[in-house]
């Protein structure tokens, strides 16, 4: 995402976007199969370290980005802690039943949400959408008509946000009665959607005229390949995963190996 924030480019910015996406997706799927809280805590800490050192953003922005993730941590953990099943009761009050097992499971879920969030942030803070889609076309053979449509869509986001604000101001000026959530959503959605459809039609005509839909023998304005940073990316993530696993198994913080 393009922010108007000054940031320093690190090696993570200069890796191949497709490779980075694949590595992070693989880790994402890997995390789904981690049931040992010690390993997960180590892994999240490793990601946190990468996030703080190598996304290249100033500290106060990193903290700002991180704030919503903390809320997700709490909200993800809370329902499992309060309503999960378990044997060793710690606390019971009406329907709320906190047990040792549900508490650990809840914390595990919290850390899992945290590591997903960090994986996502590591990617989105270090990748320009333009490079990502060019790389997807070149390395993963995504059809140009999809990639360029996505890029056009991404470019429209600021325009849509502006339109959203216009509609909001217009509705505010006109006042009107409050007839419920769904009616309100419709009032926003219909002008935004109809305008977007008209705009998409016009853009599509222009793009087709310029042969953006043509798949054969395309050349690309940005040529994206691989470099030594990509080796570094793979090595770093292997090391983080291996250390997290080894330390989690051999030097556990809590004597629980499986939260299920």
């Amino acid at each position: 995402m393009k922010w108007n924030i000054h940031y320093r480019e690190t090696w993570l910015h200069h890796t191949n976007p497709s490779l980075k996406l694949m590595v992070l997706l693989l880790l994402f799927i890997g995390v789904l199969f981690v049931h040992n809280p010690n390993v997960l805590i180590n892994f999240s800490l490793g990601l946190l370290l990468l996030f703080m050192l190598y996304t290249g953003y100033p500290w106060k922005f990193l903290l700002l980005f991180f704030l919503p993730f903390f809320l997700v941590f709490v909200s993800t953990a809370s329902s499992m802690i309060l309503f999960g099943e378990g044997k060793t009761t710690w606390f019971r009050w009406g329907l709320i039943h906190v047990t040792e097992e549900s508490f650990l499971r809840g914390m595990h879920l919290g850390f899992r949400a945290l590591s997903f969030a960090l994986l996502g942030l590591l990617f989105s803070l270090t990748t320009r959408p333009v490079c990502l889609f060019y790389s997807l076309m070149q390395q993963l053979k995504l059809k140009p008509k999809y990639a360029y449509s996505f890029l056009a869509g991404v470019r429209l986001i600021p325009m849509m946000i502006e339109e959203f604000q216009t509609v909001r101001n217009a509705l505010k000026v006109r006042g009107g009665v409050n007839n419920g959530l769904f009616e309100k959503m419709k009032r926003y959605a219909i002008p935004l959607l109809s305008q977007s459809i008209r705009r998409a039609q016009r853009i599509a005509v222009a793009m087709e005229a310029k042969r953006f839909s043509d798949d054969n023998e395309r050349t690309f304005y940005y040529e994206i390949g691989f470099g030594k940073n990509d080796i570094m990316l793979v090595v770093v993530f292997i090391v983080v995963t291996a250390v997290a696993y080894y330390a989690g198994v051999h030097y556990p913080y809590i004597p629980v190996e499986d939260v299920r």
Binding site: P68, L71, K145, Y146, S149, F150, A152, G153, V154, L156, I157, M160, I161, F164, A189, L192, L193, S196, I197, R199, A200, Q201, I203, A204, V205, M207, E208, F212, S213
Partner: peptide, 25 residues
């Protein structure tokens, strides 16, 4: 799908993407 279909689908979806994002909090 033709380019028109793809582009329109994506542009509509981006509107929903914004809503999805607001829906999170």
């Amino acid at each position: 799908l033709k380019l028109v279909d793809i582009l329109t689908t994506i542009v509509i979806s981006v509107v929903f993407g914004i809503i999805y994002k607001i829906w999170g909090p």
